[in-house]
Design a protein around this nucleic acid. Structure first.
Length: 298
DNA sequence: TACCAGGAGAGCG
DNA sequence: CGCTCTCATGGT
């Protein structure tokens, strides 16, 4: 099964190559910040906005292909955050043993810049779910409620992430049929508020971090952790520091090995200890714990 | 089989 | 406040 050269019957596709340094594309796409990327034998495939995208990477570049003509690739540069100087970010991390270990173990790990609604909805579905299950649920709602898209030859059908108004027009039963359980009423209610214009997702990015967080937490099914994920992964607030069970265990184990620390104190510690790019540091700790010491939890 | 998962919200003391 | 319980489902 090969991609094959473009034929006269196919929609003209586009290809672009971006030089990169210190960019671990597979690690980044699989690190639990986005849930739609899949590794196929032709590369990593996913959907950004309403475009099917295939990515391939080597040490020095990322090659992107779309099923439709593209001349302006700025949307992809933004999604992959290609203009970020990773070295300058790493330099702001605290110079301590846990951080050095995590950075060494996750060379080239990056943060993506995702579309706010997709990010918000995905993380509402993430609560107390393993990443594989989140991917499955997200896949189901895309198949059932997302707009069909043209994929590149050799790839299975692709769908856009369903809009808030489309989700708002579903029923709780339809959503539960996507295996999301008790998260269904949360997603439905939040989609209704966004689609109905009672909540301004587009304006969140212009607010100060604390205000933006409070706003997001007013949505059904959105607490501190999910709000921080959206602030970090979609709006790019670099100091937003999501604390989930993995990060909590990492912080306890690495920084407070023999002391009981509450969630609130941990947030205070994180805010002061990890600096202006704390969110980035958090992703290194999260990914390090998940990929390098899964058995050392507890 | 038992335990746990990128939690949130309600109820309680 | 801060703690505990429940919620639904499937992976390991």
């Amino acid at each position: 099964m090969a991609a094959g050269p473009p034929t006269h019957t196919a929609t003209p596709a586009s290809t672009a190559v971006f030089p990169v340094a210190q960019y671990d594309l597979p690690g980044t796409l699989a690190s639990g910040q986005a849930f739609r990327w899949q590794l196929t034998d032709l590369g990593w495939t996913g959907v950004i906005g309403s475009l099917f995208v295939r990515l391939r990477a080597d040490e020095f570049s990322i090659e992107a292909e779309t099923a439709h003509p593209v001349t302006d690739w700025s949307w992809l540069r933004a999604y992959l955050q290609l203009d970020l100087e990773l070295a300058q970010v790493l330099r702001t991390f605290p110079d301590d043993e846990p951080m050095r270990t995590a950075v060494a173990a996750c060379r080239g790990l990056r943060l993506l810049r995702q579309e706010p609604w997709e990010c918000l909805a995905s993380f509402i579905l993430s609560s107390t779910k393993q990443i594989v299950q989140i991917r499955q649920i997200v896949g189901l709602i895309c198949e059932r409620f997302g707009e069909p898209l043209q994929a590149l030859p050799g790839h299975s059908a692709a769908y856009a992430f369903p809009t808030a108004s489309r989700i708002a027009r579903t029923t709780e039963a339809e959503l539960r049929a996507c295996r999301m359980g008790f998260r269904a009423p949360y997603l439905l209610a939040t989609a209704s508020r966004v689609a109905g214009g009672q909540f301004d997702l587009a304006g969140i990015g212009n607010l100060p971090l604390a205000v933006a967080r409070t706003e997001l937490m007013s949505l059904p099914g959105v607490g501190r952790k999910i709000a921080d994920c959206v602030l970090l992964f979609a709006y790019g607030f670099p100091s937003a520091f999501p604390v989930d069970v993995w990060v909590m265990k990492a912080l306890r184990q690495l920084y407070f090995p023999r002391r009981r620390v509450s969630m609130q104190r941990m947030h205070r510690f994180a805010a002061t200890h990890f600096g202006p790019w704390g969110g980035y540091a958090q992703q290194y700790l999260f990914h390090y714990m998940r990929t390098h010491r899964p058995s050392k939890l507890k």
